[in-house]
Amino acid sequence: MSGFGNALSSSIGRKYVMGVTGIFLILFLIVHAGINSLIFLDDNGLTFNVGAHFMATNWIIRAGEYVLFLGLLVHIYQAINLTIQNKKARPQTYAVYNGSANSKWYSRSMGLLGTLLLIFLVIHLKDFWVVSRFTGIPTVDANGHEDLYAVMREKFHDPVRVAAYVLLMISLCYHLLHGFASAFQTMGWNHSKYNGIIKGASVWYSIIISILFALMPIAVYTGLIN
């Protein structure tokens, strides 16, 4: 095991950890966005609540949730760790540094974007997850399922919250834009015949996921769905 330990504590090993947890979170977002998109069926949230109910009660999902939190924590922990190490690698900074000449601003700002997402996550978890898992959802829908959809409608009546959600989805987009392709690079999944596909997938994934998420508060707030 010491071999593995030393592998994961090396500079490349730490990258693997970021990459693997990142890919895991990327997959999670697909599930999350998929189920949430059920609100767009505009059936008063009935199907959405079925999905939410399933997610809240299925034991595999519940177990997965722990893994998800663990993955998230590891991703955050490692990011902080790497940032500290990276700062140490350049104790004296440049007087003039023209980063935009050679790289995208968001790829240099993953820490900042990540921190914004972390703040968002706290609000988001408090808004929905804490409600559904702990404090309880006060109402039930026509099918007798806990009406998480109602909670959503209530929360997204607040324009400040809607604006914050949308803005933070933009930072999610940029975080993913770098993170998706970066994870492939880190894992060494690089092949001249597939690089173009990965790049394309990275862009489309980031945009679609972020737009889907951003549309939810907008749609609810503007009454596009009822």
Binding site: S10, Q85, N102, A181
Partner: peptide, 22 residues
């Protein structure tokens, strides 16, 4: 080589691509 690179105190790669561009 990676072990020596780490021992020298270089930072970690975050795939910004600046190195390739420069």
């Amino acid at each position: 080589m990676v072990a020596q690179m780490d021992a020298e105190g270089f930072g970690n790669c975050t795939n910004t691509g600046a190195c390739e561009a420069e």
